[in-house]
Design a protein around this nucleic acid. Structure first.
Length: 790
DNA sequence: CAGTGAGCGAGCTTCCGCTTGACTT
């Protein structure tokens, strides 16, 4: 028997609050939403005012049953879900499902988990805000209608199992459009002049730069020629005080960005680690769009800063959230206790905590005070002015602990150093002057984190969905996280040194990419298809537009079903039209003519992925070849396409069997009967000869022989094999570990069976036929199985 | 694991947002 039942969303939160509230309160968690629209076709009764059919989520029946029981026994039920649209809906669903009564149910809210905040909330209960709930229902229903009407169109017109939605489709579009920008980018070059001087009798160098750039090499070299005959005098000195301010404490999105830039974590990794830190009580909630800090936190930070760095470093303040779509149900992400400089149970958690600690502490520290000096250096022959910039940190302030990184990797100019004292009119000695060709660069491809940043700017998605969205678009095969080696580019330089000008051609790597998001052919195809037929949904402003209407619902200005009707009627008409009239698309593109046969070379997406084809579809002699990773139908050239048909290449015969070379999923290989041998990097698939191939084949056969350590008469399928990390057990297409302290050859059949059982047993694996259809079936079966289990 | 590129057309897939757990009698 309990007097008061308080229901919050998160179990970790429940634990903390229970401590604040004392004996008369039982605090439980709903684990987020407890109900959702039905999975099937009768989720929304469209003809009946879009009446939603909610069902308790299967994984929530237990929680709901327990809450129901506790609610019945309680005098008062306090619904304390988050104060945002989703939180209000959670309270309403709880009210409905638990069969609560108006007179003993109270809705309370708090934005921070501190004792005063919770006590204040208890003293100020209110009723469920039904208008806000309606706004959530509209959001939910719209997303279902969009997702479940668009996806089946893709199944029919493009490929089965694809998906589309208000958030994911726009996310993919961003990647597709950025890729096209990069590929169509026309790089321009100009020439930049830099110089290095010294003062008479001093060794400290002064770096200067000409603010203007030259369009041609001739102009740049003529500037160097002028310099050859010039004197250099200081013509002006400007000293200005400057300030740098700390960044606001972390939200989900900025945490993901900084963890990506500074620690190289993918967004899902960041969230997983943050979740662990949160559950251990080290940090506040990690899914938030607010930069707000509680009074308690601000005081705690001030105390710690004063203690660790001195009073002059403390500058307590709060930040305001710039993002207009923010709902601010939580605090910013910060350490629970600022006096803990480290926390976490492994190296990765420790690093993430360190980042959160530094960012939060810095946000409460004084501005850095700088003195910025700009020295003008006149070139006597042409009256042009070079500029040297220096920066002195007079008070480091927050820079003592933390500086935010930038996505732009070319911020060398920000690191201006200290200049020696100079006076106007002073003559400087030129050490050297350089002209260097610089190329303009396309907007950078997105990383996971910079895509999150962009989505947040557009108001698309929520803190709880950024990481899942990024993984969905990769899982669907729309987007690929990939690397590019880039290529070598030449650029022109001219150097003036010791009274001589030397002109040289130098080279640099360009187009190098690491862990960037690239669209796949299917991603591009789906984006183009949706953009053609559903312009409104694909518009970057669509979410912002419907959010405005959700706000009007929340304010009670319009009814939710009226809003949905206004959207759905025209949308559904487009759905019908598209289903009836749109052609099936395969992204077909004519690439050119095969010079050998005169037939058309084209690219398209086939059943197993992108391919190139020589000859039309009715041609009996048509030939196919798969694209390699990194190639796309949109960008492949005729030359690259023809290259693909050169493989597999017949090399010769060995022991009466054909030896061929080709490129597979794991790179170039030699095939001899059923033997596949990888071709090492120093050999070329197109050039490797029979002699070298045989060496590879024999080495592979030998390795295979050595791989087998032991076989068993009890079961033909059981083998002990030698792998990359030592011996392991292979059984029915499953692999099992052998404990380190066990001698592999001494294991008996029974002992091995025991090991297999302990490691989860044999799982059904797909057979050798590796086609798409049975794979999908197996997956469906596995899903159905897990359902019946539940 | 290194291939294939349609075929009868079964029965399946899918959204966004809130939150973690995960067993068998």
């Amino acid at each position: 028997m309990t007097k008061n039942l308080v229901i919050v969303e998160s179990p970790a939160k429940a634990k903390t609050i229970e401590k604040f509230l004392g004996k008369d309160y039982t605090v439980r968690s709903s684990f987020g939403h407890i109900r959702d629209l039905d999975k099937g076709d009768n989720a929304i009764d469209i003809k009946n005012g879009y009446k939603p059919n909610y069902i308790v989520s299967p994984d929530k029946t237990k929680v709901v049953a327990e809450l129901k029981k506790l609610a019945k026994e309680s005098e008062t039920v306090w619904l304390a879900s988050d104060e945002d649209r989703e939180g209000e809906a959670i309270s309403w669903h709880l009210f409905e499902v638990l069969g609560l009564k108006e007179d003993n149910t109270k809705r309370i809210v708090f934005h921070e988990i501190t004792k005063p905040a919770i006590e204040h909330a208890i003293k100020n209960p209110r009723k469920i805000d039904k208008a806000l709930v309606d706004a959530q229902q509209a959001r939910r229903i719209l997303d279902r209608l969009v997702g479940f009407e668009l996806s089946p169109i893709l199944w029919k017109k493009v490929k089965p199992s694809l998906s589309a939605g208000r958030v994911q489709s726009v996310a993919v579009r961003l990647i597709v459009e950025r890729e096209r920008e990069v590929n169509n980018f026309n790089s321009q070059s100009d020439f930049k002049i830099t110089a290095e001087f010294t003062k008479e009798g001093q060794s400290k160098t002064i770096k200067a730069e000409l603010p203007q750039r030259f369009a041609t090499e001739n102009e740049a070299l003529s500037f160097l020629n002028d310099a050859l005959e010039s004197q250099f005098n200081v013509s002006n000195i400007e000293v200005k005080p400057a300030q740098r301010k700390a960044a606001a404490p972390f939200t989900t999105s900025t945490l993901q960005q900084e963890a990506s830039r500074k620690l190289g974590y993918p967004v899902a990794k960041t969230m997983l680690l943050a979740q662990k830190l949160y559950e251990a009580g080290h940090i506040t909630y990690m899914r938030t769009d607010s930069v707000n800090l509680s009074e308690t936190a601000i005081r705690g930070a001030a105390a710690e800063i004063t203690r660790a760095y001195g009073k002059e470093y403390s500058f307590p303040r709060n930040y305001s959230t710039k993002n207009s779509s923010a709902q601010e149900a939580h605090e910013a992400i910060r350490p629970t206790y600022f006096e803990n400089h480290t926390a976490g149970s492994d190296a990765q958690e420790l690093k993430l905590y360190d980042l959160i600690w530094k960012r939060s502490i810095a946000s409460q520290m004084a501005h850095a005070e700088l003195e910025r000096t700009i020295v003008d250096i006149k070139v006597s022959k042409n009256n042009r002015t070079l500029k040297a910039e220096g920066e002195i940190i007079q008070f480091d302030g927050f820079l003592k602990v933390y500086l935010e990184s930038s996505d732009d990797d070319e911020d060398d100019e920000a690191n201006a150093g200290i200049l020696p004292p100079m006076s106007v009119g002073e003559k400087l000695n030129l050490n050297h002057m350089t002209s260097e060709q610089k190329f303009s660069r396309a907007a950078p491809r997105y990383t996971e984190a910079s895509l999150v940043k962009k989505l947040e700017e557009l108001g698309i998605g929520r803190p709880s969905t950024y990481a899942p969205t990024i993984s969905t678009i990769q899982k669907r095969g729309y987007v690929l996280k990939d690397n590019r080696e880039g290529s070598t580019r030449e650029f022109q330089t001219g150097t003036l040194k010791n009274g001589k000008i030397t002109v040289k051609t130098a080279s640099e790597r360009t187009g190098v990419e690491k862990n960037k998001l690239f669209p796949t052919d299917i991603g591009t195809l789906v984006t183009d298809f949706l953009s053609e037929h559903f312009e409104q949904i694909m518009d970057y402003g669509f979410t912002a537009a419907v959010e405005k209407e959700f706000d009007e619902i929340a304010q009670g200005l319009i009814g939710w079903n009226k809003m949905i009707d206004g959207f759905y009627k025209p949308f559904h008409k487009d759905v019908d039209t598209t289903l009836a009239t749109a052609e099936r698309v395969s992204g077909e593109r004519t690439i050119g003519i095969d010079p050998a046969t005169g037939k058309t070379v084209s690219g398209r997406i086939g059943r197993y992925g992108p391919l190139v084809q020589i000859g039309n579809s009715d041609d009996e002699d048509k030939k196919f070849a798969s694209l390699r990773s990194g190639q796309t139908i949109e960008t492949i050239t005729l030359e690259q396409a023809l290259e693909l048909f050169k493989l597999p290449r017949f090399i010769g015969e060995y022991k009466g069997e054909k030896v061929t070379a080709a490129i597979g999923r794991f790179g170039p290989y030699i095939k001899f009967g059923s033997v596949f041998a990888s071709i090492p990097k120093d050999k070329d698939v197109f050039e490797i000869n029979l002699e070298d191939s045989i060496i590879l084949i024999e080495a592979k056969i030998q390795a295979e022989k050595e791989k087998l350590i032991k076989k068993f008469s009890e079961d033909e399928d059981l083998e002990i094999l030698k792998g990359r990390w030592g011996p392991y057990i292979a059984y029915k297409r499953n692999n099992f570990k052998i404990p380190k302290d066990v001698e592999a050859t001494s294991l008996t059949f029974a002992q091995i069976m025991d090991l297999i059982e302990k490691q989860g047993g044999v799982k059904e694996k797909k057979g050798k036929t590796n086609s798409a259809a049975p794979k999908a079936k197996a997956k469906a079966k596995a899903k159905a199985k897990s359902k019946t289990k539940k």
